[in-house]
Amino acid sequence: MVRYIIKRIVAGFLSLLMLITLTFFLMHAIPGGPFSSDKYRKTPQAVLEQIQDQYGLNEPVYVQYISYLQNLAKGNLGVSFTKLNYSVNDLISNGMPASAKIGFLAILLALLIGIPLGTTAAVRRGHLADGVSMVIATVGVSVPSFVLCVLTMYLFCDRLKLLPTYGLSSWKCYILPVGCMAFGQIAYITRLMRSSMLETLRQDFIRTERSKGIPELAVIGKYALKNSILPVITYMGPMVATLLTGTFIIEKVFSIPGLGRYFVNAIGDRDYAVTLGLTIFVGALIIICNLIVDIIYAFVDPRVKIDR
């Protein structure tokens, strides 16, 4: 087990290095730099040169690359080119708590609703419960989240005046963003769970459980569930990482001071340092989440041989 984890950590580092390198050179390959947008048209050329020098943007790309890696090794993800005196680390520690809180609640909600809903749909296949949950699942997958955000905001905030439209000042503020974020995930997990549960219920060992006199509730909720939850566990890796780091649309619509906003703004502003820093951060998080998920998977499914 320990050897497996070490091996996975090393592999994770290598993928991360590849991600850094690829993102770095791709960003630099795009024409135009952080100071070439319209905003800086009136800025004198000499001043721009001066600024570019200061950020090291006039150096050859490989020199920039090496110094970037050196900084990274010290845990420094770089400084923002467009937000004065802001480092990427600052942005993360500013935005992450709000994003993570919402993301965590959304994940919890998605699992708590998606797993039972998908299971019920599978068990009651062809009946009303199946139909209802499949409608929810289809709508959830096909309705874009901004439509959902705007619609729910209009309904609950504007019409019914039940919930606040922005910020995170009370528990009520969490309901809409968390709900909107979870909705698509609920839909996806429900479908995943339904199809994998249907597959499991076809297996011979389910008949064995029944022949042992296990009540149907335990056959489904214990013996079939542990088998059919495996694909959901796999999906958890990328899902947790992306939800924790926030979604731009939801943060924008509900004015949540989260990480997702910074990310999209940075891309628009050609803020290499922020884009790169956040990419690396999210990438590392995905790699870590996948590692954790694989370890959990190995615990749930004893057939996975990890010591080899």
């Binding site: 064995t208 542990k226 004893p302």
Partner: peptide
């Protein structure tokens, strides 16, 4: 009433001891 099935490879639940 106990029952034994044909295929012992698939008749036991793979994820329970």
């Amino acid at each position: 009433i106990g029952m034994i099935f044909q295929d012992p490879m698939t008749s036991l639940n793979p994820v329970f001891s």
